[in-house]
Amino acid sequence: MKTLTAAAAVLFTATLSATALAEVPMDKYNKSCAICHAAGTAGAPKTHDVEAWKPHLAKGEETLMKSVHNGLNAMPPKGMCFDCSDEDYKALIEFMSTPAK
């Protein structure tokens, strides 16, 4: 099962890489995502914590995007980024779920 989860996470990250914006909209990360993801507030997976993101990525892009749009647990709908496009969300997820560069 761990192998399947790891494979799904790798596949999802590769999909994000292929479809996400070339550049992360850091202004949107700083005003919306960083509030919780920088410190892991309220159980949010921390930015660049690959292990913390694996279970979320393993759910697949459709489920993850649904969670972003509708909110999940303490995360409000759209993560409080009301001007983010789906491409922005994908780039932000890729940025947060991969190791720091």
Rank of each mutant, 00 (worst) to 15 (best):
A58M: 03
D27F: 10
I93A: 07
S85K: 06
E62V: 14
F12V: 14
V10D: 11
A42D: 14
E94Y: 15
G40D: 06
D88Y: 04
E51R: 04
A8N: 08
P55M: 06
H56G: 01
T13W: 02
V50P: 01
T47Q: 06
A7T: 07
T13R: 14
V24K: 06
A20P: 03
A42K: 13
L92V: 05
K31H: 11
K59G: 11
G43A: 08
L21Y: 08
P77F: 08
C36N: 04
A74R: 13
G40E: 05
P55V: 02
E61P: 01
T19P: 03
A74C: 11
C84G: 05
G40H: 10
K28Y: 10
A58S: 10
V68W: 03
A6M: 13
A91D: 02
T15Q: 13
G43F: 10
A52Q: 14
K59M: 09
K66P: 00
E23H: 14
A9K: 04
G79Y: 10
K2R: 14
H69T: 03
A100H: 12
E51M: 10
N73Q: 11
L21V: 03
S17D: 11
L64T: 08
N30L: 09
E94Q: 15
K54S: 09
K90A: 04
T13I: 06
V68L: 12
G79I: 11
T98C: 06
K54Q: 12
G40N: 07
P55I: 04
A8D: 05
A14Y: 08
K101Y: 00
S17K: 15
F95H: 15
S85H: 05
H48S: 06
V68G: 01
A74S: 15
A20M: 09
L11Q: 14
A22R: 14
F82T: 12
T13N: 07
H56P: 00
P45E: 03
A8Q: 13
T63A: 09
H69M: 10
F82E: 14
A7Y: 11
E87Q: 13
T63L: 08
A7N: 11
A6Y: 09
Y89F: 15
A8E: 09
G71P: 01
L57S: 00
A44G: 10
K28C: 04
M75H: 06
V68N: 02
A39R: 09
S67R: 12
M26Q: 11
C36T: 03
A38Y: 06
T98W: 00
K101A: 14
P25S: 07
A14M: 12
T15F: 08
P99A: 15
K101G: 07
G40F: 15
I93M: 05
A14C: 07
S67W: 09
K2N: 12
N70S: 12
T15K: 07
K46H: 05
P76Y: 03
T47W: 02
K2L: 13
K78F: 13
P45N: 05
P45W: 07
H48A: 07
K54C: 02
